[in-house]
Amino acid sequence: MNNPVDRLTDGLDETQRQALGDLNALAHFLETDLGTEPETAGRDHLLTVLEQYLPGSPAIKRRQWTNWLRLAHSQSVLFEKSFWLAGLLVLLLGLSLSVIDGRDLLPLVFIVVAPLLAAVGVAYVFRPETRTLGELERLTATGAAELLYTRLALVLAFNLLISLLLLLLIWLEGPQVVLWRLTLIWLGPMLALTGLAFYATIRWNSLVGAILPLGLWGCLILLGWSEAVARATEGMTPAFWLLLIISRSDPLLIGASLACLVGLGLLGLAGRTAPGGEKSWS
């Protein structure tokens, strides 16, 4: 199609063409622009850079699962003993409560504490003391996002392990609790708060990453508590009320599912905001 006006208007309706009038001047004006021609050296540099991204290039050798494990193991060295101990403490707390008043109180503690554990864990892992290390990490062949997700996966896996053990206890103690509902209602807030902690830590700092999810969760607990206290006048204990809504409330399930999605979204967003990326420098 050589006619420059046709190149502009081809595909438009006849009425639109007529309404546009004579476009010869515009078409010829646009034709005068030959555009920016790339330099040969520029093309050579482009090829040099792109060759690193070719499949099979040693520069971007895809990480094997054994390498992922090696990376995860290396990350675990960075976590202080106190991090692991805090998780175990929560587990012990759950165990002791189940001994004292297993039927009612444990699910309550579980729901309230588990997401907090995850959020605080994330903020802890990205604490400021590792800033020098963070800079040195940026000067390696491992991408910032790879590191962040490996670290996050470790925190989540550890919390998941503790939570699964507690879930098992609850299930053993209170068969009236529907297990999948409880899992989902736990997973929703945990992922959402973890995502929020992760994003806030990457975007701002680990203090904001700790305060923001803690504050949000605190508000939700307070709101829920006032509701539970109101129910107490109807003769229900808070724990019993919680078990009841876990077993029956569909809106809560939908809310937890949405929280899951929000959490995953925030985790993805945080990965894209990760420091040390090429975008953040250029």
């Binding site: 540099h45 040099t48 850079v49 690193q52 520069a59 800079e135 040195l136 940026r138 000067l139 390696t140 062949a141 991408g143 090429e278 420098w281 250029s282």
Partner: peptide, 16 residues
Amino acid sequence: IPYRRNLKLLRSQCGY
């Protein structure tokens, strides 16, 4: 090659 175009390669070759 301009830095902004190839930070990945530069960083993998840099000790600091």
